[in-house]
Write a protein that binds this DNA or RNA. Structure first.
Lengths: 93, 93
DNA sequence: ATATCAAGTTTATAACATAAACTAATTTAT
DNA sequence: ATAAATTAGTTTATGTTATAAACTTGATAT
């Protein structure tokens, strides 16, 4: 009847992050923070979760002297997102 | 960029309940429990929340000697569901 | 030198989802 | 008749989550 909704993706902020990353080669912390209109703390936590699940890759470097956190979606993340959207369809017709 | 996702509907079980009720005149507790494959406790709690929000109407009566809880979606619930689906689209393209 | 800002991280708190335990009445078996 | 099991739920407890608040670290401006 209804398919399971991956709890890692069934979260407004994490879904937004994944949605953004899906359409980009990569995105940095500040960009994601602005686009998702989230607080830095919340974003940090949710990026960790996505990263631990292997859905995204997080790379920490420096832009000049400022820290720069760059994220990109993984193959696994893309598959998970697609599965999620597919499962959603069982709910929304 | 991304639209807010009504937290009342952004829940697997509540979304399932609403999805079912949207296509039916009404449905009773047992039917919803089976179709959503949920426990009675969880279903009871989530029906209360939807009811308190005015998204559904819950009517308690008896079928013979057994209690019968009948649910139906309200206008407000239909609108909320439609809004939710619409907002979702900002995430899943 | 100190105050402020940028880019985060860590910790604390409040809300949520879920399961487990319980209630009340009914039917079935002994 | 009484005990056991079933039905149809509700209430309470517990573990997760999301989020905000507080903190860190280094850089820049005053």
């Amino acid at each position: 009847m209804f398919k399971e909704l991956d709890p890692l993706l069934h979260s407004q902020l994490r879904l937004g992050i994944m949605s953004l990353l899906l359409g980009l080669d990569s995105a940095d912390f500040t960009f994601l923070k602005e686009k998702t209109d989230s607080t830095a703390g919340n974003l940090s936590v949710q990026l960790d979760k996505l990263s631990e699940a292997g859905y995204i890759l997080v790379e920490k470097s420096f832009k000049g002297k400022k820290p720069l956190t760059t994220c990109r979606i993984t193959k696994k993340g893309i598959r998970a997102f697609e599965d999620y959207v597919n499962s959603l369809k069982s709910y929304i017709k």
